[in-house]
């Protein structure tokens, strides 16, 4: 797995969006989404305009729509929540196909879906066009505390190694005929989580040793 370059979260390319400085992209994303969130629901044309802006950026980036669409599954819980809103919200009710629904609830669900979808799409576009290393450097330029950026750097570096360990542990469980089906199996899963913690902690200590062996003294130098 994994693309030949960068991380698997990153869709390799050479578009102007890929080349744009990461700190500007992050600042742009935050600014754009603050505007989206602050826009009243009644201003429907504005949302159409936001969607067009994002659409143009996607086109410029050259990231395939299918790639973004696949990764949008992360929005599923929001869809479920939005579907519940018309039933629980208060206010005047309307009949839709024989079911009485809250009108403000319907409007709010539509608004939430619109804003959340714009947010997911915009964030995915950032992730797809920005190498994680550049993203971290960008955060540092945005004055995110360097210790926090360092921690994120370690997380990005070891993400695949730790998730691989997790996968191997599951393979080992299943090879011995274990498949988790109901809560009676939780103790086994819990022990796997515990084992993963111990392995992670020990790796953290070994990495720290490898760092101090090369003169690291706790200060973040870049």
């Amino acid at each position: 797995m994994g693309a030949p370059h960068g991380h698997r979260l990153h869709f390799h390319g050479h578009s102007p969006l890929h080349r744009a400085p990461a700190h500007l992209k992050v600042a742009g994303l935050v600014g754009f989404m603050l505007v989206v969130v602050a826009t009243p629901l009644a201003w429907a044309p504005s949302f159409a305009a936001y969607a067009v802006v994002l659409g143009v950026l996607v086109a410029v980036s050259g990231v395939p729509v299918a790639y973004l669409a696949r990764r949008m599954v992360v929005e599923t819980p929001v869809l479920v929540f939005a579907a519940v809103l018309p039933f629980v919200a208060s206010g005047p009710e309307v009949e839709v196909a024989g079911v009485s629904l809250s009108e403000p609830g319907l409007l709010a669900a539509a608004g939430l879906l619109t804003k959340a979808t714009l947010g997911v799409l915009a964030s995915l576009l950032l992730a797809a066009t920005t190498d994680p290393r550049d993203l971290l450097a960008g955060l540092e330029r945005l004055r995110v505390p360097s210790q926090l950026v360092q921690i994120m750097g370690f997380m990005v570096r070891y993400l695949e190694i730790v998730t691989d360990e997790l996968r191997r542990m599951r393979t080992a469980r299943e090879s011995r005929g274990f498949t988790a089906r109901d809560p009676r199996h939780w103790p086994v899963l819990g022990r796997s989580v515990g084992a993963l913690f111990i392995r992670s902690f020990e790796r953290g200590e070994r990495v720290h040793l490898a760092m101090i062996a090369r003169g690291y003294d706790g200060s973040a130098r870049r």
Binding site: R157, R203, R206, V207, L209, A210, I212
Partner: peptide
């Protein structure tokens, strides 16, 4: 310690422990 660690270079067993930066 600083001088000792310059003089003695240790290659640890698991390269994933030693290579922790992005490149």
């Amino acid at each position: 310690l600083a001088e000792v660690r310059r003089r003695v270079g240790i290659v640890f067993q698991d390269p994933d422990d030693q290579l922790f930066m992005g490149s």
